[in-house]
């Protein structure tokens, strides 16, 4: 089991570093100079050159990259060019919102996906199944931002059940937190939940045809136990696999949702930092997102290994 997790961990390392290298290069290859941006239109060439030297931007790219890698190891990601304070202090202020948003969205997607998929499979070809399948197709076709606007219009503007925008951290109390996170998380999770619904439905229908389900029935186990424990255990596995992919997708989708709901998250921070050519902050943000994704995927691998004993031996 430990060996399996160790192996999974090693496989995850590239998923952290490859995006970092790409972002590092893309930023420096794109036009625009942070020193020029910071000093404004009036700055002289000497002033800009001096600031570039101070920021280390006059060094060759590979030297800059090595210096930055060294920074990661020593937990010093440099100072934000715009905020003029350490990146390590800025990131935590924004990361919490994004992580919460993604986790709640993922949980909603999994819960909705499994429930609806199960409901659909158990009522195969009946009206309820057709309703769920049609809704799922709609859900997959709708872009998140559109769904977000729809949710705001219906539940915040018209019904006034939720605030239109803004964020309360969990420390403000569960109700206050939930009232600000629910709509954004739902908007972020809806497509993934539609995908999971379809996956759960087809996987459940497959599993119900497996001989071991017939065995469970032939042993006299009640249908609730046959479905709820024997079939669910194997049928949910593809959904767990998809959850890993969904997490990455959601971290990306969070940018749009954070902007629409005015949530002070990493996504919004990154968009602004890119606009300001704030290299250290962008790199710090991407590193954080990669790390969150890696941890989520490790957690999913762990759940998978618990669900399927065969995995542990491979």
């Amino acid at each position: 089991m430990l060996r399996y997790l160790g192996k999974r961990f090693l496989l995850i390392l590239p998923t952290i570093f490859v995006p970092l290298i790409l972002v590092f290069l893309l930023l420096r290859l794109s036009p625009g100079d942070p020193a020029g941006m910071m000093l404004g239109d009036q700055a002289t060439a000497e002033q800009i050159a001096a600031l570039r030297t101070q920021l280390g931007l006059d060094q060759p790219i590979w030297v800059q990259f090595l210096l930055w890698l060294k920074g990661i190891v020593t937990l010093d990601l440099g100072n934000s060019i715009f905020f003029r304070e350490p990146v390590m202090q800025i990131i935590p202020r924004y990361a919490g919102v994004t992580i919460m948003l993604t986790l709640v969205a993922l949980t909603l997607a999994v819960v909705i996906g499994i429930t609806m998929g199960l409901l659909s499979a158990m009522n195969r070809n009946k009206p309820i199944d057709r309703g769920v399948v049609t809704t799922a197709v709609l859900g997959i076709s709708l872009p998140e931002f559109w769904f977000a606007l729809l949710l705001i219009f219906v539940f915040a503007v018209t019904l006034r059940w939720f605030p239109v925008a803004g964020y309360n951290p969990p420390s403000a109390g569960l109700v206050a937190f939930a009232s600000t996170i629910f709509l954004p998380a739902l908007a972020l999770g809806v497509r993934q939940s539609a995908l999971m619904t379809r996956m759960m439905r087809s996987s459940m229908l497959d599993v119900l045809n497996e001989p071991y389900i017939t065995t469970a029935r032939a042993q006299g186990l009640p249908e609730s136990k046959v479905i709820g424990q024997y079939a669910m255990r194997t049928a949910a596995m593809p959904v767990v696999t998809v959850a890993g992919l969904s997490a990455g997708y959601m971290l990306g989708g969070a940018v749009a949702i954070e902007i629409i709901f005015a949530l002070p998250g990493l996504g919004r921070m990154l968009v602004e930092a890119v606009g300001r050519r704030d290299y250290p902050l962008v790199e710090g943000g991407v590193l954080t997102i990669s790390l969150v994704l890696a941890v989520l995927n490790l957690a999913i691998d762990l759940i998978y290994a618990i669900l399927d004993p065969r995995i542990r031996y491979q």
Binding site: E210, G220, P222, L307, D308
Partner: peptide
């Protein structure tokens, strides 16, 4: 009918590999 299964009638399948649950002990 289900109540009779197991208690009064037992079933043995051809392929025990697939007739036993793969992820339950």
């Amino acid at each position: 009918r289900r109540r009779l299964c197991g208690r009064h009638m037992g079933f043995i399948f051809q392929e025990p590999m697939t007739a036993l649950h793969p992820t339950l002990s």
